[in-house]
Design a binder for these strands. Structure first.
Length: 517
RNA sequence: CGGGGCGUAGCGCAGCCUGGUAGCGCACUUGGUUCGGGACCAAGGGGUCGCAGGUUCAAAUCCUGUCGCCCCGACCA
């Protein structure tokens, strides 16, 4: 489609990068090409919905596995609630209606009949059902039944599910009409307990993002305009993508008693006083896979952080002559077994042995982002070494390492790579974050570079701006209109008071401004 | 939902203006030569040109409609 997509192919040479276009050439197109090159997902016949392919789904499964453990370690239990929600449930919370009604898929019939060779809906439902865009209301109905006494609290529930939001514009992983997520829903006897829960889960997300995804995040509170519909307070973790935009990677909401009142979640406290429970909800979605891509992937494709990688190591036997093949394969299989017996991150090292007799294997795995690539051939066997390549290093960097040393240190190498990816991402975020104290500098920072053509993708520019803000929603709206920049969050980390550069009024602390996904 | 662009083989594209046998590169299959940094040669397979109408002797090409994708907005956790 674009000229950029084949700009560095052709001309008799090999592509300089495994993925075209590069990030700098066309970031949006690059993102899609990485997904295709790594075989993570593809568009489906259904508008806005994606097919998550095995490699992409394996990343999600690893995300699920780790988070599920974290939720259980913090006292939560999994349960499952219906996909369908009666429309009347949504109506119960006014702000919620406003927030979600426009993007609800609605089921109005329950039967199909054949008419003139076509199936047409029949059997209209008395009350339409919406396909859940989020489950506060349907889970609230259950909570109302489950909670009678302060002894029933706190109620700490999580659900792994799919949800549907009929979005105008979709992007694989980042915003799809249907997506997979988890939604935690809890009820508490007091406001402070619910706030504690809200903050605890935000902390779990921040921990997961940094320590598993190797994606540095800024935890903070959303401004009123960005608040979850119906929430009293919304908190998020915000990550910087390689186009300098912010990705909201997880949210945690303190819902006050809004949903408890809407769903009638009432209990008798220890003084025999009837009151409404205090609830929270929090979630992360398959969007995290998009975050992983845009945090780590490069112009050669995906880079999987070791702790979430579907495979840690791929072994590629080098033996094209049939007479060598048996010996090399035997050695490669033995190496695979030795590596699988090693522990990394509390589990056996995940090893793929790719013995396909094809060309281009190496690039295949580069694009998929397997952390370690190992080549083993006759020369290695004789020397007692293997050839090791790390995906976080240049694709031309290959080191011979004694086989026994590799087996002994594979866990340490993966640990080092995980740390390197985080450090690299953190440095990137720091480099593209600026403390700004004047309106002029702020506007210049976010000004879009000139485009050759009005319909070209917007070049990478700007970043995170740390600037004071008087908190006025009207000012935030004005800045959004001017620059498409919004307050991503008011960081939880302590900050100094100062002066709002836009109004000259006092400001409690600097907030994070950026363009966002 | 508004503006723009694009739908031709798995992927990337040419052909369309000026209607007349469906093309190229990569990928794939087979054979051979290669092989430790994206191999080469040869022979093959694969497309009702997004879909539906219309004009025409004849439509990938012209006209109308429609669906989808992408970009820029609007919208949005």
């Amino acid at each position: 489609m674009s000229n950029a997509s084949n700009a560095n192919a052709g001309a008799g040479g090999k592509p300089k990068t495994a993925v075209t276009p590069t990030r700098a050439d066309n970031y949006q197109e690059w993102y899609q090409q990485v997904i295709a090159a790594a075989d993570l997902a593809e568009n489906s016949p259904v508008r806005g919905c994606m097919v998550i392919k095995p490699w992409g789904y394996a990343l999600w499964e690893n995300i699920q596995h780790v988070l599920d453990g974290m939720f259980k370690a913090t006292g939560h239990s999994n349960a499952y609630f219906p996909l369908f929600i009666p429309v009347s449930f949504l109506e119960k919370e006014a702000a919620h209606v406003e927030g979600f009604a426009k993007e609800c898929a609605v089921v109005t019939h329950h039967r199909l009949e054949l008419k003139d060779g076509k199936l047409v809906p029949a059997g209209e439902l008395e009350e339409p059902l919406i396909v859940r865009p989020t489950s506060e209301t349907i889970i609230g109905a259950s909570f109302a039944k489950w909670v009678k006494s302060y002894r029933d609290l706190p109620l700490l529930i999580n659900q792994w599910a799919n949800v549907v939001r009929w979005e105008m514009r979709t992007r694989l992983f980042l915003r799809t009409a249907e997506f997979l997520w988890q939604e935690g829903h809890t009820a508490h006897a007091t406001a402070p307990e619910a706030v504690d829960e809200t903050m605890k889960m935000l902390g779990v997300y921040a921990d997961f993002a940094e320590n598993y995804m190797a994606m540095p995040v800024i935890p903070g509170e959303k401004t009123a305009g960005e608040r979850f519909p119906g929430a009293v307070q919304t908190f998020s973790i915000e990550a910087m993508m390689q186009d300098h935009k912010a990705l909201q990677a997880g949210t945690s909401h303190f819902l006050g008693q809004n949903f408890a009142k809407a769903s009638d979640i009432k209990f008798l406290d220890d003084k025999n006083v009837l009151g409404h429970a205090w609830t929270t909800s929090w979630g992360v979605s398959t969007r995290l896979v998009g975050g992983l891509i845009m945090t780590h992937a490069d112009d050669d494709g995906m880079i999987c952080p070791p702790r979430l990688a579907p495979k840690h190591v791929v072994i590629m036997p080098i033996a094209r002559k049939p007479e060598d093949r048996v010996k090399v394969l035997e050695s490669a299989n033995a190496l695979a077994a030795e590596l699988r017996a090693q522990l990394y991150d509390g589990t056996g090292v995940r090893v793929e042995l790719d013995d396909r007799d094809i060309q281009g294997k190496r690039w295949h795995w580069v694009k998929k982002g397997v952390p370690l690539r190992i080549e083993i051939g006759l020369r290695d066997i004789e020397a007692g070494t293997v050839s090791l390549e790390r995906r976080d290093q240049d694709t031309s960097a290959k080191t011979a390492i004694p086989r026994a040393e590799l087996v002994a240190t594979v866990g340490a190498i993966l640990t080092a790579m995980q740390a390197n990816l985080l450090a690299r991402a953190r440095a990137y975020q720091t480099e593209n974050t600026r403390v700004i104290d004047t309106k002029e500098e702020f506007y210049a920072y976010f000004a879009e570079p000139a485009k050759k053509n009005a319909n070209d993708p917007t070049p990478i520019h700007g970043g995170f701006a740390l600037a004071h803000f008087n908190g006025d929603p009207a000012l935030e709206t004005k800045i959004k209109e001017d620059l498409k920049v919004t307050v991503r969050c008011v960081p939880l980390a302590p900050g100094e008071p100062g002066t709002c550069p836009f109004t000259g009024q006092p400001s409690a602390k600097r907030v994070v401004w950026a363009k966002s996904y």
